[in-house]
């Protein structure tokens, strides 16, 4: 798998594909196809000013994704609001963009959450854009775009988080291959096909804080909160039948062993994952 990770300065336009060879353990059915096509057409034909418009609909390169991010952010005019009326450190992001004192890193996050097969749009992946202050190297914000280029969400970091050493902030999300090397050593594995994933479940990996997933032999693994989990191939759990409301979930959660968790696989499918006891490589 090739996740393009690239740090770009504003105005630096290098055409690098966003992704290649992703993998997923459960995918969408065909039932949403018509609605997804209608939505995609709406985005592709939207005019400037429309709430569905982005300048590079369904961006295929990092610069195009950054362009969509900036267009939408600027359209919010956050720099024109007083700091007191904004969430913490939003003004830092707004000013950094307005003054071009930030750089960007773009990564692909495979979407294993039910949002993958949305009511209107397919979101096979998210485009994660990390925003760094040039002077300090601090990570100011992260934004997740849907494949359409439209916003899904964004966060700004708190002061304590931005006070960490710049290198540590940068390495919160490494290139997947580099992250795989770290995981290989930490968990004594030889992982293949590493990718970042967003999941729902009690393994909760938000789109702006994705987790590393990889394959080894015929099994899939996910690293969550410094622990390694093997994704069980069964039983598969369906939203609406096996889980989906606190009432249904309660019995399911209580049936799990202490080292087991729920993890979504993409579409309305979940399964369990079991923590792997490991011996670090020396």
């Amino acid at each position: 798998m090739r996740l393009a990770t690239l740090i770009l300065g504003l105005g630096l336009a290098i055409n690098v594909p966003l992704r290649a060879a992703p993998w997923v353990l459960a995918d969408c059915g065909a039932e949403g196809q018509t609605a997804w096509q209608v939505f995609e057409q709406s985005v592709r034909t939207a005019k400037p000013g429309s709430h569905l418009y982005v300048p590079k609909a369904y961006p295929q390169t990092d610069p195009a994704a950054i362009m969509d991010f900036l267009y939408q952010y600027r359209s919010l005019h956050r720099d024109q609001l007083e700091t007191a009326h904004l969430p913490v450190n939003e003004s830092l992001l707004a000013q950094g963009i307005a003054n071009s004192t930030v750089t960007y890193q773009v990564l692909r996050v495979e979407n294993w959450s039910p949002l993958r097969c949305g009511r209107e749009q397919r979101r096979n992946y998210f485009i994660l854009i990390r925003v760094f202050d040039v002077a300090s190297g601090a990570e100011i914000a992260r934004a997740a775009l849907a494949p359409s280029g439209l916003y899904a969400s964004y966060v700004t970091f708190r002061d304590a988080e931005m006070a960490e050493p710049a290198a540590a902030q940068r390495d919160r999300i490494m290139d997947p291959a580099q992250a795989m090397q770290v995981a290989d050593a930490q968990f004594n594995v030889k992982g293949q096909s590493p990718e970042y994933v967003a999941t729902w479940g009690t393994i909760y990996c938000p789109m702006t804080s994705p987790c590393l997933a990889f394959k080894q032999a015929n099994d899939a693994y996910i690293v969550y909160k410094s622990a390694l989990y093997k994704v069980n191939s069964g039983p598969l759990l369906a939203v609406g039948k096996d889980l989906g409301t606190p009432e249904i979930n309660k019995a399911l959660l209580e049936s799990l062993a202490a080292n087991e968790r729920l993890v979504s696989l993409g579409g309305p499918i979940y399964t369990t994952a079991r923590e792997v006891a490991h011996t670090p490589a020396h």
């Binding site: 899904a152 966060v155 708190r158 909760y204």
Partner: peptide, 21 residues
């Protein structure tokens, strides 16, 4: 989000699919 941080800015289209109750 008690896990992610304060005031995650979510676009309404995504939000409406995330919330159930």
């Amino acid at each position: 989000d008690p896990q992610v941080g304060p005031d995650t800015r979510v676009d309404p289209g995504t939000w409406m699919e995330e919330i159930q109750s």
